[in-house]
Design a protein around this nucleic acid. Structure first.
Lengths: 171, 171
DNA sequence: AAAGATTGATTCTTCAATCTTT
DNA sequence: AAAGATTGAAGAATCAATCTTT
């Protein structure tokens, strides 16, 4: 028995935070997809996936990392990181190294050829991104990055529903 | 013959725009992944993919849309949209309708059951997002959305390398 | 028992080719 | 010829189960 117009949506009845969050999520997802399309295409020019690219980037900036660390950094599944590092190893760009202090763990590290490739590719890749993101000035980009950093940290820190359930059962 | 430290990175040599864009892209991708993990898990509670969820959301807000419009909106491949609409049709949530003015085209529209489901699910979903995005105040969220909207439009409007090539060949 | 990594099966998505209509 | 949609094949990522080490 609502008297709302026929094309009214549930969204109209949301609280301000819920409405704001939903809106931001839609915009964020769309912006991500639009930029990812460019980045992905650029990575493909070198026969690489976006995920592979992310790993190379992480290893280049941080040096050798434990597989688990890479996993958390690029947010891929446990099996996924093994698969990706395998493939990058086959391509001769990455190698595994033993961890002296924990024999379960493995480091992923760039090979010399990997180093070379990244050094060759990255400046161009960054230039492409600068063009794609040219809609915002550098200060605006920095502000956006700061806001998104806060957003991402909060989201990563918020326990997921499944985790909460698990803890409830065990605790 | 650089005199840079051994662990210097290419990033150090980038122009300010390139460096800023690269940084923003990494942060954006990470924030997206962190939030998507929550949204995805919530969608899964109802047996839905994030992409399916996106379609339902679009149809709910905008009413019946041509398949191509949905495709551009949620940025999935041409074959992907057919597959997803097929599956949502199998679930009884969406139906195809003929387009009177163009017999090639098809509309996707929510079925009554689809309408019902969305109306039931969405407020809760939005609340979850509000919790996940609680790291930013509502005004901050609005500012972020505005910045990302500009970013996304620019990225979507920037012709991709492949397109440029194509046009170059034809033009 | 828990953490790190790996494997095989499954699912999701894209890609290239095709059909119809404009 | 180009746009809209669909199909089947191929690729990429996740999931659940397993193995080793702590």
């Amino acid at each position: 028995m609502h008297s709302a117009p026929a094309n009214a949506t549930v969204t109209d009845d949301l609280s301000p935070d819920a409405s704001s969050a939903l809106h931001l999520w839609v915009i964020l997802a769309r912006a991500h997809a639009a930029i990812a399309a460019h980045a992905s295409e650029d990575a493909a020019r070198h026969g690489l996936t976006l995920a592979e690219f992310g790993i190379l980037e992480a290893l280049y900036h941080r040096g050798p990392l434990l597989l688990g660390e890479v996993q958390r950094r690029i947010l891929v599944s446990s099996g996924g990181i093994t698969f990706l590092v395998d493939r990058l190893t086959d391509k001769g760009l990455v190698e595994r190294r033993f961890c002296p202090s924990d024999r379960r763990a493995r480091y992923a590290a760039l090979t010399p050829r990997g180093q070379e490739l990244v050094a060759e590719i990255f400046p161009e890749h960054a230039k492409l991104l600068a063009k794609v993101m040219g809609g915002l000035s550098v200060p605006e980009q920095q502000m956006t990055a700061e806001l998104l950093r806060t957003l991402g940290l909060q989201a990563a820190g918020t326990p997921r529903a499944a985790d909460q359930l698990k803890h409830a059962v065990h605790g």
